[in-house]
């Protein structure tokens, strides 16, 4: 069966602006999009540029937009795409500048990975830890980061250390689309991986404090794209939510993001409902309120005002009991 590949083309040295070029390719059973691109490059057009290496969904090089969604070309079957879209439309990853055709400049992505300090901090002080010893027969070194059940439970058997830095999540991230300085899902999932690592000696909680700064983990828009489109089954957004939970439990609540979450929890604990006015005020403080005044005023003129005092839900004591059972009353 013949099918069409419509490829994004752009060579900044010769082209004024990007354009699309169509190629007709002959399919074979099990053909992947990467197979198709390699066929085009070797048989039809040697100038088509794209990254590729392992062809086994482990190096992450061939991430690109396929029919509008970021995927690994080597892991994407041509037949499934043709069934759904009738064409293979390939474009470079989003949220990064294009160098040529399907190749993007990854510098900004890796700068953000570096920004979270992707290495163990500090020195263990216990002397025994620093003594090298020969393992006895059958003895194994335990890998503490994998032993933590909470870590394993994040996404079944898959977890954050399996990230291959392919940038699929970064390309799909709503937070980065809206704010190019946002650290993004891969870097923040990696941050969580170090926060949870018992070998990391972060005495003053600097990871959580730095991550709570603007462009950090409170800027996640919860669009769930990173989890949905990760080719390795990792859920960065769940790692980000864990960072939220951990910060609040450690009373690192200076950011408006954390104030927002605590305020919602407080509102539910008091009324069983989300009090829109109170949450708006407590999240942004006076500055936020002043900033939102024109919007609130406009909405007010249209009668779109939430009640000033909310009626409690029926059986409110059930909700209070949930907070009590979980020992959360002092966190409000």
């Amino acid at each position: 069966m013949e099918f069409k590949v419509r490829a994004y083309r752009f060579n900044p040295e010769t082209d004024e602006k990007p354009y699309y070029k169509e190629y007709t390719v002959e399919d074979y059973p099990g053909m992947t999009v990467l197979n198709a691109l390699i066929k085009i490059k070797s048989e039809l057009d040697g100038t088509l540029s794209f990254r590729r290496s392992c062809r086994s969904a482990i190096c992450g090089s061939c991430a690109m937009k396929i029919n509008g969604i970021t995927k690994l070309a080597c892991k994407t079957q041509v037949s499934l795409e043709i069934d759904k879209f009738g064409i293979i439309n390939v474009e470079p990853l989003a949220n990064m500048p294009v160098i040529r055709d399907l190749i993007v400049d990854q510098e900004v992505f890796f700068d953000k990975i570096k920004a979270i300090k992707p290495y163990l901090l500090g020195q263990r002080e216990d002397a025994a830890h620093n003594i090298f010893k020969t393992l006895k027969e059958g003895e194994k070194i335990s890998q503490p980061v994998y032993d933590k059940s909470e870590f394993k439970n994040l996404t079944g058997n898959e977890d954050t250390p399996n990230c291959i830095l392919c940038e699929c999540c970064y390309s799909e991230c709503g937070g980065v689309v809206g704010n190019k300085d946002y650290l993004g899902p891969a870097a923040l999932a990696k941050l969580y991986r170090y926060v949870e690592d018992p070998r990391d000696i972060d005495k003053n909680g600097s990871r959580l404090v730095n991550g709570s700064m603007p462009n950090g983990f409170w800027d996640c828009v919860h669009c769930q794209s990173c989890e949905q489109f990760c080719p390795k089954g990792i859920s960065p957004v769940k790692s980000i939510v864990k960072l939220h939970e951990k910060s609040i439990k450690n009373s690192i609540t200076f950011s408006s993001g954390s104030k927002h979450v605590v305020s919602i929890a407080r509102s539910i604990g008091e009324t069983g409902r989300l009090d829109e006015i109170k949450v708006a005020f407590e999240s942004g403080g006076v500055t936020g309120l002043l900033n939102d005044l024109p919007v609130a005023f406009g909405a007010g003129l249209k009668g779109k005002i939430p009640p000033l005092r909310l009626k409690l839900i029926k059986d409110m004591e059930d909700i209070r009991l949930a907070y009590k059972e979980l020992d959360l009353e002092d966190k409000l």
Binding site: V241, E245, I264, A265, L274, K314, D315, I319, L326, L328
Partner: peptide, 26 residues
Amino acid sequence: MPEASCCGGGVIDGFDKNLKLFINGR
């Protein structure tokens, strides 16, 4: 459902994951 509570606005697990389970399980 007059007894039903807020679901937590999509962020309540950032406060406490079990609270999300309890109030929505209810």
